[in-house]
């Protein structure tokens, strides 16, 4: 049962009025201080500040495949990232090249299933994956959530 525990003394009406006025003034004082010091206000006006937004270097956005100096992906279609992913986000579609060697055909990345944990990037032994800083991923096109990550450089 809820009841006033004896530990708290009851205030008299006069005490009430004094205390209440005091707390009102204190509260307003704090707010007023920020009114007078606009530099200390921390509000940022997203989306107007989009161009100035900076992400931490480690920020984990959607997975991408960078190119090396030769303009190639480093991926060997080993499939470790596919295995490391807890959500089945990555599908490695391997194929064979003219020399009958197993190579990457498509790395299909189901963005809608990704939880941005970074385990695939950690698992890749060839450093072929990166997490980008892309954000604002919402879309009304289902196709935007099925990405083929390997691509020709410059495209």
């Amino acid at each position: 049962m809820s009841q006033h525990a004896p530990a708290y003394p009851r205030r008299s009406l006069a005490r009430y009025l004094i205390d209440a006025t005091k707390s009102l003034v204190t509260g307003l004082g704090i707010t007023g201080r920020y009114l007078a010091h606009p530099k200390e206000v921390v509000t940022r006006e997203y989306p107007d500040n989009r161009t100035q937004l900076r992400f931490a270097e480690r920020f984990r956005g959607p997975v991408t495949m960078p190119h090396d100096e030769a303009g190639e992906h480093r991926c060997t279609a080993c499939g470790l990232c596919e295995k490391a992913c807890p959500n089945g986000t990555i599908s490695i579609l391997a194929t064979r090249n003219l020399a009958d060697k197993r190579v990457l055909g498509q790395l299909v990345y189901h963005l809608g299933q990704c939880s941005f944990c970074g385990l695939c990037v950690e698992a890749c032994p060839f450093d072929a994956l990166r997490m980008s800083h892309e954000f604002e991923l919402a879309s009304d096109q289902k196709a935007d959530f099925e990405r083929v990550l390997n691509h020709k450089e410059g495209r």
Partner: peptide
């Protein structure tokens, strides 16, 4: 703050 005190003292023991 008096309001906070009055609304939490002895409530939900």
């Amino acid at each position: 703050n008096v309001i906070i005190q009055e609304r939490t003292h002895g409530i939900g023991v």
